[in-house]
Design a protein around this nucleic acid. Structure first.
Lengths: 347, 347
DNA sequence: CTAATTTATGAAAACGTTTTCATGTGACTG
DNA sequence: CAGTCACATGAAAACGTTTTCATAAATTAG
């Protein structure tokens, strides 16, 4: 090798030089600009692949102020529902030429804040967020909103007004369906293991639960309504409390499947027959629900559909761009479906 | 507002102007360059937060040829093992100031190729890969290797020599332990539901299985060794084949838990007692294994440890950088542990 | 007290694109 | 056939940093 040129890293200038054209033309050819001759475009494309050229996103992003990258903040990738949503989002987004930076807040507000900053520094074109259960102040997202960069919330969304796009499940309906189903299966004394009321999810589910109870004129026992982090141990302890009494529930509606599974576990350990003495329903249709014995009735949330809708909205917002309004005024509501299994069978 | 300046997007120049300093000094202050007065640094920091300044990664990356971003390619985020690994990687990486771009190959080679190109275009500083089960040609990663950018493979790694860093589980040992355990529990006729032999994983596990069988002088029936995609239906069909015969296996070692669970399902449907007539062991210690009845013996792979080791190696490689060799010559082997449950209990 | 060195800052170039503006074709219009 | 207009290209500026080089100020050495 005589000319001591750099070994790899081919740029637009290398193509320009090779073809005796200006870098401007190369750029235009690569970006499908209309004013470039068919032949020129072909030449450029050919030379580009020949030289193994790859656009430098840094340079491109700096100049055009677009990164073709979207940031995603979720509590944890290892939660079944979110894992499915991500898979769907990432695959769909890729088809539209966008990359995804996935970040986990570990369900803490401070981390969510930091990540928002980091993603802002990376100048992502948009943000997709399933926020923390404790997030009630959303000002850390203002930076994006102010710059007209779309922010899409899914599943866990801000309550109240906010200049962002909302894609959410029909949590009210889900809870209503499940509770109704328990009642129709014969339950008269139903407990509700729910999450923190800071989140829209559990507000809606609590309401759905109460509506069903109310419609059937069933009394609601305050001590049987739990608002707590939906961990296995918490649910187990809730069960202990409920059953440490002479009047016992004959139905439990849990706001996630981990809690429902914990309830099943408690029942097994204490010789309580499910569904004979106690019926249990969960939420999310986690794969575990169909495997455990007895299998657990649960509410399907269609994570793939959620992902699809998120990307749909995003692509629309990113394409119109200039025309103000970087958000959709109406929330998209994803339907739910009750999957009935053994844990709520009629005796 | 009289001066029609841009509303947000504060840059280093804005700080410079506000403090009557040059942009160079601001940059140095922000990057902890030694030659900057204590007071100056403080002033800069203060003004930076006051103006809500955030470094523009595009510009920074373009100039310094560093993005502080790492690319990750995995088959699917929704696989339990990988979800756990990602969580661990992402959290650890974040502590070192790196972001992660997560991509899914959907376990297809062509997608893996494309994603590698995309991540190259984004000029990520390094690549973490759990490759496809069918990836036998690794030339698409050469672009990174040639430019001395670290490539770290975990779990599914290239067989043979390749200038990259390997973090892998002790698959041979895992299979050996599981098979041994089945034998010691009394099994004499053991089947093996394994994955495609293109992958290092299943080569090693096949070998471990055979070693254990051999050591105990047990015969291996060719028709009971399956190399196939490890899906539920495939495993179910394998079970049908095995049990459609007069001589039936009394033990099944499956290379993942989905297959083991399918085996349990088949046994349940056909009235075969587990562990009475048939003992079953799986691989990965998926949460489902401890929930199903009977619970399934499985091999724990310590995904968190895998993630930790990946980041450890990466940070080391990225820090030495200049000193050639962007890979570790010795693979890191993550130990495994057999988790014994009901499905292999002695009768 | 001067010379050499270290510390602190600024000016300006550089990174690889995209985009505005200018310019030159050739084709169409009236 | 002159004037307008769509097409095709190039020159050069711009994006916001980092970094090299130069220089000034402060410190140390001799």
């Amino acid at each position: 090798m005589t000319t001591g040129k750099k070994t790899y890293q081919n740029t637009i200038l290398d193509i320009a030089e090779a073809l005796k054209l200006s870098p401007a033309t190369i750029s235009r050819a690569l970006n499908n600009h209309p004013y470039v001759k068919e032949k020129t475009r072909n030449d450029v494309m050919e030379m580009a692949t020949k030289l193994g050229y790859r656009r430098n996103q840094m340079a491109s992003g700096l100049r055009s102020n677009k990164t073709r990258t979207v940031g995603l903040i979720i509590p944890r990738v290892s939660m079944f529902f979110h894992a499915e949503v991500i898979t769907s989002i990432q695959n769909d987004l890729y088809k539209h030429g966008y990359s995804l930076i996935i970040c986990q807040s570990n369900d803490t507000v401070s981390m969510e804040r930091e990540l928002t900053e980091t993603l802002y520094a990376s100048r992502v074109d948009a943000l997709i967020v399933a926020c923390t259960l404790q997030t009630v102040d959303f000002s850390h997202f203002d930076k994006f909103i102010d710059q007209n960069k779309p922010v899409i919330f899914y599943d866990r969304v801000p309550v109240g007004d906010y200049k962002a796009t909302f894609i959410k499940g029909d949590d009210f309906e889900g809870a209503y369906l499940a509770t109704n189903h328990l009642i129709e299966a014969g339950c008269k004394q139903i407990a509700h293991i729910s999450g923190p009321l800071t989140s829209n999810l559990y507000q809606a589910r609590a309401a759905g639960f109460l509506k069903a109870m109310d419609e059937h004129g069933l009394p609601v026992r305050e001590e049987w309504i739990f608002h707590q982090e939906l961990y296995h141990e918490n649910a187990f302890r809730a069960m202990e409390k409920m059953f440490d009494d002479t009047t016992r529930p004959d139905g439990v509606f849990a706001d996630n499947d981990t809690s429902a599974i914990a309830a099943i576990g408690y029942a097994k350990q204490n010789g309580i027959a499910v569904p004979g003495e106690l019926k249990i329903a969960g939420y999310s249709n986690d794969p575990r629900t169909s495997i455990i014995t007895p299998s657990v009735t649960s509410v399907e949330q269609f994570p793939n559909l959620v992902g699809k809708k998120v990307v749909e909205a995003l692509v629309e917002l990113l394409s119109q761009e200039a025309e103000g309004l970087a958000y959709k005024t109406e929330p998209v509501i994803i339907p739910v479906e009750l999957i009935v299994r053994e844990s709520t069978a009629i005796n």
